[in-house]
């Protein structure tokens, strides 16, 4: 199992959380911890810890393709 934490900057759109969850589940990652915070009317920060057998890039690259995801950084703690 690989444990990783993703720090995601996203646009504050009504669909964005649902889509993040959908892609995360579909790509075979389980969520251990999740925190979402509105930084401004336009911006969200989502901090998400995930587990998977797959390398984290398999998820982060898919999430980064989402139209409302602006930036992702990964920490392996």
């Amino acid at each position: 199992m690989n444990h990783s934490t993703l720090i995601i900057k996203a646009n504050n759109q009504p669909t964005v959380m649902e889509r993040l969850m959908q892609v995360t589940r579909y790509r075979g990652f389980s969520i251990n911890k999740l925190n979402m915070q509105k930084l401004s009317d336009k911006d969200l920060e989502i901090i998400m810890s995930v587990d998977s057998r797959n390398p984290i890039e398999n998820l982060s690259r898919q999430l980064l393709k989402l139209v409302d995801v602006v930036d992702i950084s990964i920490s392996n703690s």
Binding site: P14, T15, E18, R19, Q22, Y26, L66, V67
Partner: peptide
């Protein structure tokens, strides 16, 4: 439809 289309589209808007 947004929820249904989410996994079948590049993006969806309402």
């Amino acid at each position: 439809i947004i929820s249904l289309a989410m996994a079948a589209t590049k993006h969806c808007f309402q």
